[in-house]
Design a protein around this nucleic acid. Structure first.
Lengths: 214, 214
DNA sequence: GACACTGTTGACGGCACGACAACAAGAGGT
DNA sequence: ACCTCTTGTTGTCGTGCCGTCAACAGTGTC
């Protein structure tokens, strides 16, 4: 008819690449966090994000690429600003640091629980690399925060010790946030004492073991 | 022709169910240990085991069932016999125990590395259950070994602390066996000191925090 | 208001998995 | 030796998922 102005509204909105990519990634993280990889189909993610399935391949190459992007995003944890650490005995500084860590973790609870939750078999070099890098950053950040950034000798061994300590941090947080078998205070006590011991007792002894080293 | 005795040999051997199941499972563990779950096809496992693909479904229900069986097998670790622990100060007993642990782990290196290697996101309740149960057993075994099986109060919290400690054990072993950033002696020192501190310092303090408890 | 750019869609081909009926190896009986 | 029954094993069929790609349609620009 003449005068017919019934504009059919757009069937889909056109977004900036970064926006669309982000939208898909968020939905993917939700789904990967609640179901194992193989149980999440790209169709599921596409449906949740309200886009066509093919778009996932356009932005993330493959399902695996999407998964890796999700892992990368989740393990990206904010770093501690050493400037906010008070002076004083090591133990006090460590306690402040661990306290900040627990607060930070509880804010990012969803992602952390997803990462902490499972560790099955399934050697995946790329995932391992991403996680190892995240652990390395976390350890480096911790060491810098307590002012031991350039201790020597055995600086590398110190970093390895702290990365090992990181394994206990994850497990302790799991006990607290998932299994509810420890309180926040108890975890704080545990992680503070253990790190203090590590830095004040274990590391010096390790240095004594082999005085001739880097 | 008469006298033709060309018996065509059997095209396949018939095995006892347990035998065949074991054969398939071993190959599956190899493959799952070297490639991520999604990259291992049931055809691959079948080919490696020299059987038809359908047989996998017959013995393990599904690919996922096969994977769960592999995880179960790998996390089954021998337990320590407390009778072999010498008397003496706690620290000495702990050191003996950790030393035994490291020896045991290095024997089962392949499986352990596979388990320790990856922990990506991907919430999988069944896998979590299997691993949590393995951690629980390990912690219980350790506690019994050092003779703290029935300390009170806070026996449950002690178990949680030791499970958290288990996270450090895994991470430390990873540093030693995979990344080669710590020596066996250094790992022994670390794990001995940390566990001693946990049992002698941290746990008593935790008990003091809340004297009124189970 | 028409054009061009590119974000987005939908369909096609191949492959992996689970189900199931048919097959055959091997043991036991005659 | 031969037959027969049991059941371990195979191969095929249907379904669903993933990666590719050409066509389509928002949306800024002249």
């Amino acid at each position: 008819m003449a005068g017919m102005s019934a504009q059919s509204p757009p069937r889909w909105r056109r977004l900036e690449p970064d926006e669309r990519r982000e939208q898909i990634l968020e939905r993917a993280i939700d789904l990967f966090a609640e179901r194992p990889y193989a149980e999440v189909s790209t169709s599921d993610v596409a449906r949740a994000a309200g886009v066509a399935r093919g778009l996932i391949n356009h932005y993330f190459e493959s399902k695996r690429g999407l998964y890796l992007a999700a892992v990368r995003r989740i393990v990206t944890v904010p770093t501690f600003d050493p400037a906010t650490l008070p002076d004083g005995p090591l133990r006090a500084r460590v306690e402040t640091l661990v306290d900040w860590l627990l607060t930070t973790v509880s804010k990012h609870a969803k992602g952390w629980i997803a990462v902490l939750g499972t560790e099955g078999i399934g050697s995946d070099p790329e995932v391992e690399r991403i996680l190892a890098e995240a652990d390395r950053r976390a350890a480096e950040n911790l060491i810098k925060s307590v002012g031991m950034h350039d201790v020597r000798p055995h600086g590398q061994q110190l970093r390895a010790l702290v990365r090992a300590y990181g394994g206990m941090v994850k497990a302790a947080v799991r006990e607290w946030m998932i299994h509810d078998t420890l309180t926040r205070d108890q975890v704080l006590l545990l992680l503070t004492e253990q790190l203090t011991t590590l830095l004040e007792e274990t590391f010096p002894r390790l240095q004594e073991l082999d005085p001739a080293a880097q």
